[in-house]
Design a protein around this nucleic acid. Sequence first.
DNA 1: ACCTGAACACCGTTCAAGT
DNA 2: ACCTGAACACCGTTCAAGT
Lengths: 215, 215
Amino acid sequence: MAKKRQHRYHHGDLSRALLQEAVHTIQKDGVDALTLRQVGSRLGVSRTALYRHFADKSALLAAVAAEGFRMLRVQLEQAWQENGGGTEGFAAMGAAYIRFAVAHPSHYRVMFGGYVRGAAQGTELEREGGAAFQALVDAIFALQRDGILRKDHPLELAQYIWAHVHGIAMFAIDGLLRQPVDEVIRFSHERMLGGIVTAKTSDQRPATSDQRGVE
Amino acid sequence: MAKKRQHRYHHGDLSRALLQEAVHTIQKDGVDALTLRQVGSRLGVSRTALYRHFADKSALLAAVAAEGFRMLRVQLEQAWQENGGGTEGFAAMGAAYIRFAVAHPSHYRVMFGGYVRGAAQGTELEREGGAAFQALVDAIFALQRDGILRKDHPLELAQYIWAHVHGIAMFAIDGLLRQPVDEVIRFSHERMLGGIVTAKTSDQRPATSDQRGVE
DNA sequence: ACCTGAACACCGTTCAAGT
DNA sequence: ACCTGAACACCGTTCAAGT
């Protein structure tokens, strides 16, 4: 519709606009279709204007990923707190994770697509990613303290749980889930807590010596 | 190394050579660094020779993914059978999955990197991917029949398990695992079977919040 | 500071032409 | 059938130059 050409400099927050436009493009056509030139021209800006705000293309993608981790962390913390922690909060957190991925697939794909390999030392991305993971670790601490979860090494347990929701999230995004996502969330939560072996009527589990070998 | 220029046509199986060279490049420099021109020139072949064997770049990647799924399926079936099925076979299968991903990260990344979106209808890729998944479903059928696993909907259960090993595999490939991969495999298998809730059925509240992981 | 056009060294893909 | 070089329409990135 013949967007009027701006001969003035880009007014507001170009950095933010570039980020949004990149996310929008990835959402619509995939990350491989993202070109800096098109992002610029969509915004009525020169194709090199972007370099005033991002070092290069991978820096733009790193910014997308960092934003994604920040949004994810907020969702996770919110889900935990609004449900008062505990088993309820844990379930809500898992659901929030998967729903975030489904709601923001382009962010999610960039976050875990390996586009951000080398750029991850001491950057905003690393910080935000670590903070999101920490939100889960904190929840696990609390659940262990309250005797709800096993007293495994918290980091190992967090990794176990994160890997699972990550796998579900990726399948959901890729359209590989055969059941509705809410059903998968429910099933996953239940089986994650209780395991997948046949439910014994008498006793719970064989005796795996009360304490696991430390370290 | 001044590879002698071949003025004759490429002798043997160019299709196979292209595939191998592509995998090698992805392994070394990542999938974004893969260029058809370089693959051709590495093989001492014109940069358009590839189009006699693959429709385009995404077809080449689809072939990499299909090969990956075929190799994975073989590994899974072998692990299951060589361990005589049952709980042992199941554990071996999970370990084989993760070890495959670690041993062939470039295949694995292409298999699940979303590079193969649209091209997946009725193709070799879809067939191979389906066959690999079926190997897991077959094992689950057997485990349910033998009363080892809960009688959940097999597909749902297979998806639950696959999502988990997939998540672990991705983390392993991305270098995000904080523990040795074999330890993660052991831990995952144990918790997947038995769940993550506190094992104690009797009351017993001994825990005075023992040593937390000091990370 | 922030933006610009021109230029460089690349891409994937097509196509008429060779053997 | 299989391979080739030239050509087309793109890229990311750099840089001297504008305001």
